[in-house]
């Protein structure tokens, strides 16, 4: 069942195109990672999903309803955590959590207390005294203590310490196991890799990759360390081999996934002594997409 669906979404601010023909789908029980550099359009997409911004063209649907027109109905079943949590300086954390829970409509007292304990928050302090991490905890506790069907999280852990980040990951996996869906925008790639079933990469307002992590790995290069008996003099000429580093008889290379078979055939002619393979990390993928192509749109430098 499709929980969230974005079709050909375009958003313009004046003459500036923030989102250009964006498509995205999140199924039930799925955690979808949403990654991209600052200013790529992640928050704009999320704010359109929340009905806070109005799409210039295209549609965003959640639970089969229109994100703009049926915002209030949709919001009864979703929980949102912004990346930059601004709270009212003269209210306490506890008051804000209660207010947020109440505004969604449901109320789960024991869950609230449990989360306050797990995230180690002092709810009697005024928000003005909270650090960024503590303000994020307030928003997370309010979101997680609601019984939502879809969680929209915009860089929710950017201010949390590693311990709290783990608590967050546990909570998200619990939600997934309970059949909830999550749209997680994040810069912390290890987190996305650990949690997400699916990843969408956005850059300069366009979705440039989307698919499961396994799918995406095929698009990138494997990282191999090879030691051979005989020297491989023309290794760099083999199709699909990149970034060759030689240290005596030991080679470090990047190989296009689709050429892996051919490359291995070539290498094995020289007598393999040792072979290590590192799977492409999301970071490799990320970097590959961000570097190189960035000239043109933003930079006439």
């Amino acid at each position: 069942m499709t929980i969230l669906e974005i079709n050909n979404l375009t958003k313009k601010f004046g003459s500036f195109t923030a989102l250009d023909n964006v498509n995205l789908k999140v199924e039930k029980g799925e955690i979808c990672g949403f990654i991209g550099p600052n200013g790529a359009g992640k928050s704009t997409t999320i704010r359109i999903l929340l009905g806070i911004l109005k799409a210039t063209e295209g549609r965003a649907k959640i639970f089969g309803k229109d994100a703009w027109a049926d915002a209030v109905e949709i919001h009864k079943r979703i929980a949102y955590v912004p990346g930059d949590v601004n709270l009212w300086p003269n209210l306490t954390g506890g008051e804000v959590i209660d207010l947020f829970i109440k505004l969604r409509g449901t109320n789960n007292k024991s869950r609230r207390e449990e989360l306050i304990k797990r995230f180690d928050l002092d709810p009697t302090k005024k928000c003005r005294t909270y650090s960024k991490g503590n303000r994020q905890k307030v928003a997370l506790i309010a979101a997680l203590s609601s019984d939502a069907d879809l969680y929209i999280l915009d860089e929710p852990t950017s201010g949390l310490d590693p311990l709290m980040e783990r608590v967050f990951q546990e909570c998200i996996l619990e939600a997934k196991n309970a059949g909830k869906s999550v749209l997680l925008s994040s810069h912390i790639l290890s987190e996305v890799e650990k949690l997400c079933d699916k990843v969408a990469i956005i850059r300069e307002g366009k979705i440039i990759e989307t698919g499961s992590l396994i799918d995406l790995r095929h698009l990138t290069r494997a990282h191999l360390h090879v030691q051979t008996k005989l020297p491989m003099t023309s290794l760099h000429e083999v199709v699909g081999v990149h970034d060759v580093e030689v240290d005596g008889q030991s080679y470090s290379i990047h190989v296009d996934s689709e050429e892996l078979d051919e490359v291995m055939k070539y290498v094995s002619q020289y007598g393999i002594i040792g072979l290590e393979s590192a799977p492409p990390t999301l970071e490799d993928l990320f970097m590959r997409h961000y570097e190189g192509v960035s000239v043109g749109v933003g930079g006439a430098v």
């Binding site: 929340l50 919001h75 601004n86």
Partner: peptide, 13 residues
């Protein structure tokens, strides 16, 4: 101050 989104992001019209 980005605080209306806390309201509008929930079930408040």
């Amino acid at each position: 101050k980005n605080r209306t989104e806390h309201m509008l992001g929930r079930a408040v019209s």
